[in-house]
Amino acid sequence: MTIASHLQELRRKHETLSNLVEKEQRTPGADALKIAELKKQKLRLKEEITRLSDA
C-alpha cells in the first residue's frame, strides 16, 4: 500500500467518523461517552493524516 492510498483510506475513515459524530449529536438522548470516544478516534486519525502528509 502506498502512502497516498493509505492517506486516502485514513481520510475516508475520518469522514465516516465525522458523519457518525454529527448523527449521534442530533439524536435525542445521545450517549455523551460514545460521542467522546468517536471524537477521540477522529482526532487520532487526523493526527496520523497530518503526520503522514508532512513526511
Rank of each mutant, 00 (worst) to 15 (best):
M1L: 05
M1E: 10
M1T: 03
T2L: 06
T2A: 11
T2P: 15
I3Y: 08
I3C: 01
I3A: 06
I3H: 11
I3R: 13
I3V: 02
A4Y: 02
A4S: 08
A4T: 07
S5D: 01
S5P: 08
S5G: 02
S5I: 05
H6Y: 13
H6K: 15
L7I: 08
L7G: 09
L7R: 14
Q8V: 01
Q8A: 04
Q8D: 05
Q8W: 05
E9A: 09
E9H: 10
L10R: 13
L10G: 03
L10I: 04
L10P: 04
R11F: 00
R11Y: 01
R11A: 07
R11T: 01
R12Q: 09
K13M: 06
K13H: 10
K13I: 06
H14V: 00
H14E: 13
H14T: 02
H14Q: 13
H14K: 05
H14S: 09
E15N: 04
T16L: 11
T16A: 14
T16Y: 10
L17S: 01
L17R: 01
L17H: 03
L17Y: 15
S18P: 06
S18R: 11
S18T: 11
N19R: 14
N19S: 07
L20N: 11
L20A: 10
L20T: 03
L20W: 06
V21T: 03
E22F: 07
E22H: 10
K23C: 00
K23Q: 10
E24K: 12
E24I: 04
Q25K: 13
Q25H: 04
Q25L: 14
Q25Y: 03
R26S: 12
R26N: 11
R26H: 06
T27C: 07
T27Y: 07
P28A: 00
P28W: 03
P28R: 03
P28S: 02
P28N: 01
G29L: 13
G29W: 02
G29A: 06
G29E: 11
A30P: 14
D31W: 02
D31R: 15
D31Q: 06
A32F: 14
A32E: 15
L33I: 06
L33S: 11
L33H: 12
K34C: 06
K34D: 12
I35M: 14
I35S: 02
I35V: 15
I35H: 10
I35K: 08
A36V: 04
A36T: 11
A36W: 13
E37I: 01
E37K: 11
L38G: 04
L38P: 08
L38C: 05
L38S: 02
K39A: 06
K39E: 15
K39F: 02
K40C: 01
Q41L: 09
Q41V: 03
K42I: 00
K42T: 00
K42N: 07
K42E: 11
L43Y: 08
L43C: 02
L43K: 02
L43Q: 09
L43D: 08
R44F: 08
R44E: 13
R44H: 08
R44W: 02
R44M: 11
L45N: 15
L45P: 11
L45K: 04
L45Q: 09
K46E: 14
E47L: 09
E47K: 09
E48K: 14
E48T: 05
I49T: 09
I49F: 06
I49N: 10
I49M: 11
T50D: 12
R51H: 06
R51K: 15
L52V: 00
L52A: 06
L52Q: 12
L52R: 05
S53E: 13
D54E: 05
D54I: 00
A55M: 14
A55E: 14
